[in-house]
Amino acid sequence: MHTTSFITKIVHLHDASIKVGGQVVYEGEKDEPFAIFAKQAFKYLEVDYPKFYKMDALSKMAFLGAEYILQSEEKEGLALVLANRSGSLDTDVRHQQSIQDTANIFPSPATFVYTLSNICLGEISIRHQLQTENAFFVFEEYPADFMQKYADYLLVSAKAKRVLCGWVEYFQEKYRAVLYLVDQNGQKPHTTENINELFES
């Protein structure tokens, strides 16, 4: 399979900082809890979307990354393909803790609904009204070759016009997101080497 696809935009989110195209667009206080950072980074966008506050940390991070990278971008035909290492483990643990004490079991439905890692794709889709292909994979490290082939397949088979790909890893305050847009037009070729390079910065 051969296609001509390009990486057109990238966002990095880690250590209370958000960069778009390598430029810092939002920076919180170093070492501040993720919840504080996420809330402030969201408020900085001045977006009226109360549902954000109800999301778990993984969804908040994926949502923020998508929000920053999709500003001024065409969303029609946008597919989503994300991956991480821990799945929804952070929320799974919180849910498990709520049912630990058999004499005092009050699991939160709002927590339970996030015990699937692909829920973050749903949150992005709802926000941007996407009715497109989406997939979430769990890998030890970012599978650049696999993701490159998967995104190109979506483009070549006309299942998508562009693809938002990336890594959204969150577990107990350790977090990192690297999201990038793949399009049929652009300058930077969508190759495994170039994808790996995004993860070095």
Binding site: P50, K54, F106, P107, S108, P109, A110, V113
Partner: peptide
């Protein structure tokens, strides 16, 4: 307040807890 179905479930848990 614009609550949704998950919020309704949370209110049921709140009543119990």
């Amino acid at each position: 307040l614009g609550l949704d179905s998950i919020d309704a479930l949370e209110l049921i848990v709140l009543m119990d807890k």
